[in-house]
């Protein structure tokens, strides 16, 4: 049984299996998010048209060459209105998601790391707030301020940090019982050091993922508030304002002022969610199938 194979053996590759669907979803989502971001960043400075230009002579025109998305009841170009609306919705969504993630991570990490009565107390507060419908609470918060961007951001953030707090707390609790935390404690690490150097870095990927997944939620929430007339002032029309504005003509058979802003809410939010989903598969160790030696 002498076996010297001096020559390079004939290598065979295995599998392109179970990659394809994820890859396609990832690419489509990434492309849509890229288009969205580019449109929002580039269209306003490049296209020097005023979305507010009122042209009563061409009001409620159906989609056509001059106005791909048609015009609204004041004759404003809907495509331009949608891009500006998306800009504002996205801004509010991202800002609110960031604020909510910072609050949620801080609260969740504190509760999880300290444990005991602090944890119990904090999580009861979280449960109490979560028991009030988001939108109701959001309306209540907006109603306390003058209309503007920040009240909406605050309203969305204050209703959305709860889920992040729960995720982060659960993650911290599961990490806290790991032997490596025991080892750090035994090595003399203070409570603060364990939290900041060992627990927090481990939960940050999860928190970041939760933040991205929250952007669509925040955009929907903002749209709902605007649709109810409680969100942004009408001169900063967000997508929710646009849907609201188109509602009256919907009954008259003019569908475009509602449909296009609606699609502008749905497509980018699904794209962001899709991207976050693909990312989750990457960071979630349970779904990893790479080489382990």
């Amino acid at each position: 049984m002498t076996c010297e194979s001096a020559a390079e053996p004939a290598w065979r590759s295995y599998g392109v299996r179970r990659r394809s669907t994820t890859a396609v979803r990832l690419r489509v989502s990434a492309a849509l998010v890229a288009v969205t971001v580019l449109a929002v960043l580039l269209v306003p400075p490049l296209v020097r048209l005023d979305q507010q230009t009122v042209d009563l002579g061409s009001k409620l025109l159906p989609p056509g060459w001059a106005h791909p998305f048609g015009t609204d009841d004041l004759g404003r170009d809907l495509l331009l209105r949608c891009v500006y609306g998306l800009r504002i919705s996205l801004l509010v969504g991202v800002a609110a998601a960031l604020v909510a993630t910072v609050i949620g991570t801080a609260v969740g990490a504190t509760a999880g790391a300290l444990g005991g009565w602090v944890d119990q107390g904090v999580m009861r507060v979280v449960d109490t707030i979560a028991s009030v419908p988001h939108l109701l609470l959001g309306i209540f918060i907006v109603a306390m301020f003058r209309p503007g961007v920040w009240p909406v951001v605050v309203s969305v953030a204050l209703t959305h940090w709860l889920s992040t707090a729960r995720i982060v707390r659960a993650e911290v609790l599961s990490l806290r019982s790991r032997p490596y935390i025991d080892a750090a404690v035994s090595g003399g690490a203070s409570r603060w050091r364990v939290a900041v150097r060992h627990l927090l870095p481990a939960v940050l990927p999860r928190a970041a993922l939760a933040a991205v997944l929250m952007v669509p939620h925040a955009m929907w929430h903002e749209s709902a508030l605007s649709f109810l007339g409680l969100g942004l002032p009408t001169h900063m029309a967000s997508l929710g304002n646009l849907v609201q504005g188109g509602r009256s003509s919907l009954l008259a058979g003019q569908w475009w002022p509602t449909l296009f802003p609606g699609l502008f809410i749905i497509v980018p939010t699904l794209a962001v969610a899709g991207l976050a989903g693909a990312w989750r598969e990457r960071i979630d160790p349970r779904r990893r199938s790479e080489l382990m030696l």
Partner: peptide, 18 residues
């Protein structure tokens, strides 16, 4: 605390992965 050193069974779980 530091007068007692500990080593656990599973090195993968006992080491901070970062």
């Amino acid at each position: 605390r530091t007068a007692v050193g500990v080593v656990f069974q599973q090195p993968r779980l006992s080491a901070d992965p970062r």
